[in-house]
Design a protein around this nucleic acid. Structure first.
Lengths: 193, 193
DNA sequence: ACCAATAATACAATATTCGTAACAAAATAT
DNA sequence: ATATTTTGTTACGAATATTGTATTATTGGT
């Protein structure tokens, strides 16, 4: 076998330092040489594995999405009550959103090469489909009300994630988890006792 | 009168956006055009006021130092007890250190042009002299022990500032101010009751 | 209406970054 | 051990980005 594609030490080092740099400064401001120096790898090793900066950016993005998708699947496949899954999902979203960098996203959408843009849109679409499917299943299994419009559910779930990161709300609770629990309870049972 | 040097709207806008960009990304990664665009100012206006990127960086650095020096003087000239001044000083140091950017400092020390480096060293020296003078005065006025070596005092004061930013310590107190109070009390009175 | 300052644009001169080639060195497998 | 593959080093021209200036039109205040 010729090469263990994309799993060699070099590629991993490149990916890690690229992510670190992209996360801090976006894509535009970071040079290939910088990534290499940070990774302790020669420029040639970079170009043997990636054809340009855009490609490593794609790779980084893919890795991040794969990672959070895997965490998502793991949560949904657990054998626990549905509300508990939602709690974990909100926690996941909270953590992952810390990871994503504003600068990175900005550069993705400003880049003339739209490949990154369509990649991220594709991932968003896939994520939407995945969660739609799981919610539909939950509805069929009777875990949530049957007369609920799914698009409304999705919107509300998203709103939940946003509120879980709201500073004003967070200040009212000891730990973020307490807020998430409150939000999720409200989400499932409303305010009636 | 020809021009209100360095106080016109343009210069101020340039300074502000330069600071914002430098703070985030350091000097190296930021271009003059970017600063201008962010400031809503044409490139010519920039070059009429500053001869290059290094000069605006100097200007930004100077402004920042001037600001914190002015705050320092204001604290020391207050008519309050000496320990109270130290408390405020530590708070000041805490706030200003948040302001300074790691990326900015890194670029200053890596820049081949050493003018920024010597400028910051000069400011540090001036700061050291200022505080040395004030501590000597405090000693003469009998606000602190006479047999205290001033260089040791300076070292300890600096250590105080560092501890006031220590996460592990901060976690032990409700508010940062509580830690600062504790540290300052220890600084002045030791641990004896 | 005048003046100084600014914006807009184009531009040559530099500087930086990119991507590749060629070969030596090191690592890995067989 | 030796063949095979991967990596490091250096140098380099091409492509791109940035700099700093010149020119002209426009603005805003007095």
């Amino acid at each position: 076998m010729p090469a263990t594609k994309k799993t060699s030490k070099g590629v991993q080092a490149i990916t890690e330092s690229a992510k670190a740099l992209f996360w801090k400064h976006g894509i535009r401001r970071v040079t290939v040489e910088e990534i290499c120096k940070e990774a302790g790898v020669s420029k040639m090793t970079f170009y043997r594995n990636f054809s340009n900066k855009n490609e490593i950016a794609q790779h980084v993005l893919t890795k991040v999405v794969e990672h959070s998708t895997s965490r998502y699947e793991k949560i949904m496949n657990q054998d626990i009550a549905f509300p508990a899954k939602i709690v974990e999902l909100v926690i996941l979203e909270r953590e992952e959103s810390k990871g994503i960098s504003q600068e990175f996203l900005k550069d993705i959408y400003q880049n003339e090469d739209s490949s990154l843009q369509s990649l991220i849109e594709q991932y968003q679409e896939e994520g939407r489909e995945r969660i739609m499917r799981d919610m539909k299943k939950a509805q069929e299994k009777g875990w949530i009300r049957k007369d609920l419009k799914l698009s409304f559910l999705l919107y509300t779930l998203n709103d939940l994630d946003k509120k879980a990161r709201d500073e004003e709300l967070l200040a009212m609770y000891e730990k973020p988890e307490d807020l998430i629990m409150e939000l999720t309870n409200f989400f499932f049972y409303g305010i009636l006792p």
